[in-house]
Design a protein around this nucleic acid. Structure first.
Lengths: 206, 206
DNA sequence: ATATGATTTAACCAATTGGTTAAAAATAGA
DNA sequence: TCTATTTTTAACCAATTGGTTAAATCATAT
């Protein structure tokens, strides 16, 4: 039964590596710590993934996928723009509520090695163009205010992601380090961000 | 002239340390690299700052100050809210244009050691309350839409900071890695963010 | 000038760390 | 059961790295 056992340890390593890398980043993580976290010998980690770099890359790809929720469905639907944005924001914030360390990890590591990021983006097939075209259609239909669609996307991402990335700072500055209060705040943003954006871009039909 | 020489090397070390730490973070930086960058012997770095941790803390405090522009002036002025927000956003984006690595560094390190952040915040005397009170006054005067003032501050920070923190990703996804184009994009945001926010929160007087 | 104290350097050290290796243990096939 | 293969481990290694030390250089004051 080599298959089952193999999958099992490989998975244990991946889980442990994700936990450690996400918290401490590539530089701050130790192979020994990953092994300990997986409850195995350090040499086993090398046996399965050869080098720290290779293991890290596997984790980065795995984690990176999670931060791009199924955007396609939200663009291709023929719901009104209000609904689309609602879905986008809620989807995003929900993903981050479940994986609050994702933004920090991604931001940290895209700066550490941007070239590697490029290869991941390429292999992942990210097409923001679809989103831009959708935005532009809505603008031409007079549904939303005219603006650079890239601005709109960046604004949506900023408003959704930043509060997670800056969590320790915001929690401390705005909520006296009350963890629950800040989590509730993030929850609420599913609606407040939506309102904030819609109020800004929606054109009332005359 | 021991004083002059001392100040000189100490400053050289601080500058070198800032450059290195900001790019590579605490874990990714090497004392040797800092010494090389300053053009001195590694032992000198220890002679002036004893440990890496102490040097890092000095840099963190120094850098942290820069990311909090003189907020006081912008709150205490009696200009209309439109002007205040304009000043806030322009001020912020200008600071970041000059120090584009700041956001990444801060976000990285506040997650690495949140307790240290707490001590820095305390010693720095950050009072978001002043800002909140100003926002609340504007709401009660019917100038801007009523909302949780913390939401508004977080939104402003998100929109201003995130595009810098996520620069490699955004530059790659939205501008085919065209550095100048992205810089221009960030420049433009001094006005587009302002419009975006004002459109959202400003109440037209009837 | 030279004694004194501060600054700077080269050489060194101990601990950490990514990675290897050889042998042991587990597994599967005959 | 016996053999071959895969999985796991303990021990080890070389390189890196933060930090120390003792000697050298420099500046200053007497």
């Amino acid at each position: 039964m080599s298959e089952i056992k193999k999958d099992n340890t490989e998975e244990k390593i991946l889980n442990a590596a994700q936990a450690v890398f996400i918290q401490k980043g590539m530089d701050g993580s130790r192979m020994q710590e990953i092994a300990d976290h997986a409850g195995i010998n350090k040499a086993l980690v090398h046996y399965y993934f050869r080098t720290k770099q290779k293991l890290y890359e596997a984790i980065f790809r795995k984690v990176f996928k999670q931060i791009f929720p199924k955007i396609e469905t939200f663009i291709l639907s023929d719901q009104p723009i209000e609904e689309k944005l609602t879905i986008f924001i809620e989807n995003y914030i929900d993903v981050l509520l479940k994986n609050p360390y994702l933004p920090t990890f991604i931001l940290k590591e895209i700066n550490r090695d941007p070239e590697f990021l490029a290869s991941v983006l390429k292999s992942q097939g990210i097409h923001p163009n679809q989103i831009f075209e959708m935005f532009e259609r809505e603008m031409e239909d007079g549904k939303i205010r005219k603006m650079d669609p890239r601005e709109l996307l960046v604004n949506l991402l900023s408003l959704s992601i930043f509060p997670f990335a800056a969590k320790p700072l915001m929690q401390l500055m705005l909520f006296e380090n009350d963890k629950k209060a800040y989590k509730q705040f993030l929850q609420n943003r599913k609606t407040t961000v939506q309102e904030f954006v819609l109020n800004s871009i929606l054109l009332k039909d005359k």
